[in-house]
């Protein structure tokens, strides 16, 4: 089975067969998109909620808003039909805790919120999610059936 690795601030789309994986998601958000009719899968590992808040924004995969747009575009090029695409959202945890929390430290939560907003805006339904907490996650998206495996250290393994 072909395994395609998606790194931090990166995104990939494939047509079945094959697995898309991203390792050690922390405060970043993993956005898994799937179109089951044509078996096209896409995975993005985005770091920041919005490309509009920052001037250094050439890397589209780094930001939730631009990453989702680009990922859908790539999936359509691989043969996906946009209106059939559904989403699964993973990550956005808060790895460190402080008494006084600033916005930057709450980035995980903001990444998840931004993801939900963007998906809603684009009319993509979220069918499952595993977000928040204070631990890391590794995910594997199977392009055959769209199942998403979530692995953690000390917090179990599940398929969503």
């Amino acid at each position: 089975m072909k395994i395609v690795k998606v790194r931090m601030a990166d995104l990939k789309a494939i047509k079945a067969p094959g697995i898309l994986t991203t390792l050690g998601l922390g405060s970043c958000v993993g956005i898994a998109l799937y179109e089951k009719v044509n078996k096209v899968a896409g995975l993005a590992h985005a770091m920041l909620p919005s490309s509009k808040e920052i001037t250094n924004n050439e890397n589209k995969a780094k930001f939730v808003d631009t990453a989702i747009e680009l990922l859908v575009e790539k999936m359509v090029k691989k043969g996906a039909i946009e209106r059939y695409i559904v989403a699964k959202v993973v990550g956005g945890s808060q790895m460190f805790t402080f008494n006084t929390m600033n916005n930057v430290l709450k980035i995980g939560e903001r990444n998840v919120m931004a993801t939900k907003m963007k998906l809603k805006e684009m009319g993509i339904e979220i069918i499952s999610e595993d977000t928040g907490g204070n631990y890391g996650r590794t995910i594997e998206l199977d392009s055959q059936n769209g199942s998403l495996l979530v692995k953690t250290i000390g917090h179990g393994t599940k398929i969503i």
Partner: peptide, 11 residues
């Protein structure tokens, strides 16, 4: 996981 911990400074 290193990736998860380092995502904080990376961000």
């Amino acid at each position: 996981m290193a990736g998860a911990i380092l995502s904080v400074p990376a961000i």
